[in-house]
Design a protein around this nucleic acid. Structure first.
Lengths: 117, 117
DNA sequence: CAGTCGTACTATGACAGCCGAAGTAACGAC
DNA sequence: GTCGTTACTTCGGCTGTCATAGTACGACTG
């Protein structure tokens, strides 16, 4: 099985999290589930990676956290909300992705492709 | 200017180098120039990154090095040749790339696209 | 004839992000 | 009564990248 190495995703974990936060505030466990679902289990973010991303992004001002007691479980969760600064960062990363894709694909042979466009 | 962050390229530097070695043995400085040219200067690999990639890949058995005196300059260069193991690794990375691209693009909004295919 | 530019590297050490391991706590299911 | 799920936290290690610096030699440039 081809597995996605963390070294390529590295630096795009933040982007993935921010993307999900664009739809509204969320918290660690849910984000993690959403990533798994959205990618059909192809990418499962590690807990430590996720939570360290949150703290890093909060430090950088990309997200804001707030504590709230959930209505369903009655337990306290740490929610994160994307900031305008975070949205800017997301947009930057999106643009960077386009470039990066172009660059990497110059080094990827297309031998296994059968149909195109 | 959107610049490519090293964190996304990370782990694909090896792949890029191996791709260039598929065409035949080469050495550090030339590989570096080829990367710059092939990407129209969009990606310039750092010297230290390049040479540490070589030593790492030799340790992993992806490349073999040999010393040779160049015909034009008369100076000694360290050439690298891709091994069969290295070719396998390259193929793996190529497959991984397809997956990775799919995954990341689930998190990239297409707002700025105007035409498609 | 000194200085700078291009080639072709090597060594060292720092840093960032990812991740494994382990722990905590509270709830429901079986 | 322990297992699975939720919802985290702490710690420490590893890997790849990069800044900095240095070596060495030939060519050209003022």
């Amino acid at each position: 099985m081809t597995e996605i190495s963390s070294d390529i995703i590295r630096g795009y974990n933040d982007t993935m999290i921010l993307f999900l936060l664009l739809k509204g505030p969320s918290y660690g466990y849910e984000i993690s589930k959403q990533i798994r679902n959205l990618t059909d289990g192809k990418y499962i973010i590690k807990e430590t990676t996720l939570y360290s991303a949150f703290t890093r992004m909060e430090k950088n001002g990309y997200v804001e956290s707030f504590s709230q007691i959930s209505e369903d479980t009655g337990k306290r969760r740490t929610y994160y909300r994307i900031t305008t600064h975070g949205m800017e960062y997301y947009r930057q990363k999106r643009d960077e992705w386009v470039l990066t894709k172009e660059v990497i694909e110059k080094f990827i042979t297309k031998e296994n492709e059968n149909g195109s466009c």
